[in-house]
Design a protein around this nucleic acid. Structure first.
Lengths: 200, 200, 200, 200
DNA sequence: AGTTAAGCGAGACGGTACGTCGTGTCTTGTG
DNA sequence: CACAAGACACGACGTACCGTCTCGCTTAACT
């Protein structure tokens, strides 16, 4: 999303005044603050600029649109879930999903995703970044499931992608549509439904 | 979403000139047309008014915002799925989900939902109507599952609501987030995961 | 301005329900009140209708436009100045102008005229009624001046119309443009300038 | 009327991008054009914006309302009458008033004043600018009359302000109220009434 | 007494303009 | 060059007012 090209460590020394790193921080911080306060769709670039004590042009020099900025802020605010091998598929999944619940419960940037998916419908660039973002949730899950296959806990011909959809689907559904709570209970019941059927 | 209160079955005739039914039709039709042509977010109230040959004030008299209107149009465009008892849980579910797939595939109003859920985050009224809308999908499913419990195909202590989340979740996930295809294959694999003991 | 044709005492009996006289009063009263409170240009027909406890259609059945109504209200609020023969041109003029000053000082409907003249520019109907209204000020003056000619206090070839313009002009100027006070002092000084030059 | 504060002669350079002078010109020109074509009251800000190839927001950044804009345009369109000393009060006045007649006859912006004075009643800002505008007509007259006093053509104790009201009053009356012609004849007869002792 | 045409209250309606807001770009002067 | 400040084009927003209309009810005068 960033406009800045990947800087070649040597050569590629851009000419004039270098970009201030403080600006990036200030803008992202202001974005997170405002998104939390008024929601993403009522967050305006002018407000972000004022809050970050930065000019709008400076923001647009780094992010191509409001959504690009917000997505970047979201990504920054998203604490990754590292994949730990607990020795069993059930253990791995349980650990992973409990962590996921924690992420969902942390209030900040709550309505970011709902807003972004609407915009992503007609913004290929954002669409792409959003996919990218989603992978950070899918990838560890994929590894967990692969280990399960390796251990013989899952059939070799299981379609892991669909299985991931089935596992993450309820989270998406509750978050985006039903607005029902995402909690430990959901994890337990979800695993109770899905796991027994997967055992070899 | 309509502002008109539920009409008292007896008397309760509102006083002045009654609202024209043609206006409702024209506006909803124009909304569906425009949403299909340019997408929800590029649909403007001015355009709807022009297309429906209606004044903007008239639209706002009935719908409190663009989203309220669009949601109403969405509801009208949503063909319900009737619940048919095929004799088995698997049969019922399969039939229901295959119908659901068809609904998702029909292009019109495709990006309506993604747009609405962003707005519903800070619009209690819309939130409420959206919930209402979602029930249209959950209710028949609930009946199917209840029949399954009755037949002994599902354990009596199954949490049907979570099960519905698990069934509808992958659809929501693919539609709203992953943008991956929603097709017959998904139905097959989803059922294989959720109902393996009932398989064959 | 009234749409009702002058009723032929005999014949011309209109058929259906006769118009209510109370309505006329209530509407004119409401108009005067509101014009005094918020000014003519911020007075709206809807507000008048509410205040008079009357429907808008009923108002428009009697007056063709907001301005027609306001002009009618203005005319009703305008206390005429009767012409009294004091025996001398100076006496007549002085008396008349002092009365005129009183009329200008009475606050009600203060900004009616300013508003109407703007509208009259592109409303022939109103233009006509306005001329009519202005005559009620000019006619008595004309009589006074004619008596002056008769008494030999004015030259026979004096252009009375221009003279009236000169006498009323300063009032119009102060009222509409300069917003400077219209008081006894103005009368004295005006007569001091105009009268000596008119003596035969 | 301009929102820009009176620029401090020294420094006081405002910070951001300076306002474009072309915009002012384009907007004022468009206003004069449209006012001439359709009249002030049918002139809309949207039309002005389109004609001037400028955005509405830009117009509102400079003028607080339609009337403020129109008044500014009026002021620009008003060709001043310079004061020439012809050697006599009568000569000066005659020359000045004949020029004034020409201004009134020039069609452009004809109904601007009638429209503005209605609005000025409840718009202190506009009221103020209007007074300012009126001074442009009074000041030269005042100088003429002062010279008249200096020459002994007018009594030293003459109230010049009232005299100006008497001179300009008939113009205002005919223009705003009576809509009767403002021509050379008026000048002659007005002077005959006001300055008979100086005649011939 | 019943008929009938108009008056009337309520409020929907088309149309038009309003003034504001938000996005993303552009243009200054300054560091 | 980056940056702050803020002007700018574009386009949508939701509101307000005008004058007309469409209901159902009421009121008299005429049959």
């Amino acid at each position: 999303m960033e406009i800045v090209p990947p800087v070649d460590p040597v050569a590629a020394r851009p000419r004039g005044r270098p970009r201030s790193a403080e600006v990036d921080e200030a803008v992202l911080a202001a974005t997170v603050e405002l998104a939390g306060e008024v929601g993403v769709s009522r967050l305006s670039m002018d407000d972000v600029a004022v809050r970050a004590k930065v000019s709008k042009a400076t923001i647009y020099r780094r992010w191509s649109s409001k959504e690009a900025l917000v997505l970047d802020a979201l990504r920054g605010a998203m604490v990754p879930i590292e994949d730990v091998d607990t020795g069993s598929l059930r253990g791995d999944l349980e650990r992973y999903l409990r962590e996921l619940v924690k992420r969902f419960q942390s209030g900040k940037m709550r309505d970011v995703l709902p807003h972004l998916i609407g915009v992503a419908c007609h913004d290929a660039n954002l669409r792409c970044s959003l996919d990218d973002y989603l992978q950070t949730r899918r990838v560890p899950l994929h590894m967990i499931l692969e280990r399960g296959v390796g251990r013989g806990e899952l059939a070799v011909d299981t379609d892991l992608d669909v299985l991931i959809d089935v596992i993450l689907g309820p989270f998406a559904y509750r978050k985006l549509l039903a607005q029902t709570p995402i909690d430990e209970e959901l994890v337990d019941k979800l695993l109770a439904i899905v796991l027994p059927n997967l055992q070899r």
